[in-house]
Amino acid sequence: MTVELLPDLVLCVLLLVVAWSALFASTRRDAMALFVAFGMIVALVWARLGAPDLALAEAAIGAGLTGVLLLRAARKLPVSSARRFDYRRHLGALTFIVVAVSGFAVSIILPSPADITANNIDSPVAAAMSDSGVSHQVTAVLLNFRAWDTFLELLVLLFAITGLRQLFPIEKESLEPARTWQLLVSWTRTLVPLLLLVGGYLLWRGSSGPGGAFQAGALLAAGCVMLRITGMLPPLHWSSFAVRGSVCAGTLLFLCTAVLTHSLGAGWLDYPEAHAGTLILMIETLATLSIAIILTLLVAGERKDLCS
């Protein structure tokens, strides 16, 4: 056993331990705190596996924003009562675990196909990189080779926010805290400018290295959520054109690009080669804006944000 394997082993054990404790925590709040920790460890695992793009997204969305969302949801729920042992539920869970683990085992035992990651150099992606307008492979796949997927992913967010708006039909009292915690306020003052800086950097960096619209948008959203929770940011009224416009901006630009490249250029989402880099950066910038606003609304949206 080499020394290099040691951190991986530690991560694996930690992942399992944290997952177990999150599932079997005694209170809801503990379970959520452990879930956030779990997300951070998963992010480390991705980084260790050589997928920094995924690690960034997991840390920002999986651990950060989802954690805040869970904690906010927990405040609206009644205090959890003592657990009763529900025999049927455990039986279902047990069956699921057995099926999942055996499926996983089968997939490992089966003759393994050629390693997908190994021949990275002569993959079609690597061969087409020079025409893609960017130098980072993940960005090239997301914004150029499979841009249609990314466009539909942006639509997913748009659908989600429209769906969320259906959940506030009746006026309820706001759950904003009467008085914000002073430490949180001063932390937010320090953190938000930093988040803005890092978000902007990730967006810019996306064309040549790990980063891009989703990661940058998630970081900006984290900043907005903090501002919104501490009350430093006023409600984002859905009725204001600025909010709806920024929610749709990324989709609109993407759609315009597709339609224009189709009617004037070579074909649907076929960027002119000389301007591919610029186009991708523009799309990513507006997409970052849309993603940031939508994620903020999804996580911190109250009735006065979404339905007024």
């Binding site: 079609p124 087409a128 080779f145 841009a147 249609w148 649907w268 989402l269 076929d270």
Partner: peptide
């Protein structure tokens, strides 16, 4: 889509 060859494009 995008004018890429089979296997790379959607």
């Amino acid at each position: 889509l995008g004018g890429w060859e089979d296997g790379l494009a959607i």
